[in-house]
Simulated scan of single mutants.
Amino acid sequence: MVSPLQDKGFMAETQAKEWLESKGFIHRVSNYRFKHAEIDLIMQHKGILVFVEVKFRSGTGYGYAEEFVDYRKRQLIIRAADHYIHEVDWHRDIRFDIVGVYKDRSGRIGFKHFEDAFY
């Protein structure tokens, strides 16, 4: 059974994917797993492989999305990305982005994109 939190996360990832595609990104993989790590979205944009962490927030009272990707989470994503890069034999540029999906009080969805957020 999927919890409401997991359901919100899946919805946010789907919305982020569609939003990024509308910006010219090409979707490669969703929810890529390697050991204990998961990359929400792997996209390609202008020849760059982009590993995207998606964070959903209903308001900013507890902080912004980018504040919830701590050092440990970044290290797990980097490790999984390294595995994916070797798996597909990627030899060009990469970057790590965070996409915040925000829902305001009236239910409208907004996005905040942090390109090259960490490495």
Results as ranks from 00 to 15, higher is better:
V2I: 05
V2K: 01
S3E: 05
S3H: 01
P4S: 03
P4I: 01
L5E: 15
Q6R: 05
K8L: 15
M11Y: 08
M11V: 06
A12L: 04
E13A: 10
A16G: 09
A16M: 07
K17A: 15
L20F: 04
E21D: 08
E21Y: 03
G24V: 06
G24A: 10
F25G: 08
V29S: 09
S30Q: 07
Y32Q: 06
R33K: 11
R33M: 12
F34T: 01
K35E: 15
H36Y: 09
A37I: 07
A37L: 12
E38C: 13
E38S: 13
I42V: 14
H45Q: 06
H45P: 08
K46R: 06
K46W: 06
K46S: 14
V50K: 02
V54I: 05
R57C: 15
G61H: 06
Y64C: 07
A65G: 02
A65D: 02
A65T: 00
E66P: 04
E66V: 02
E66C: 05
V69K: 01
V69P: 12
D70L: 01
Y71N: 05
R72D: 15
R74L: 05
Q75I: 03
Q75L: 11
L76I: 00
A81K: 00
A81Y: 07
D82A: 10
H83D: 15
Y84G: 09
H86I: 05
D89N: 14
W90G: 11
D93V: 04
R95V: 06
F96N: 04
F96V: 02
D97R: 00
D97P: 08
I98F: 10
G100K: 02
V101G: 08
K103L: 14
D104N: 11
D104V: 02
S106Q: 14
G107E: 09
I109P: 13
I109C: 12
K112T: 10
H113E: 09
H113C: 07
F114R: 00
E115N: 07
A117Y: 00
A117I: 01
F118G: 07
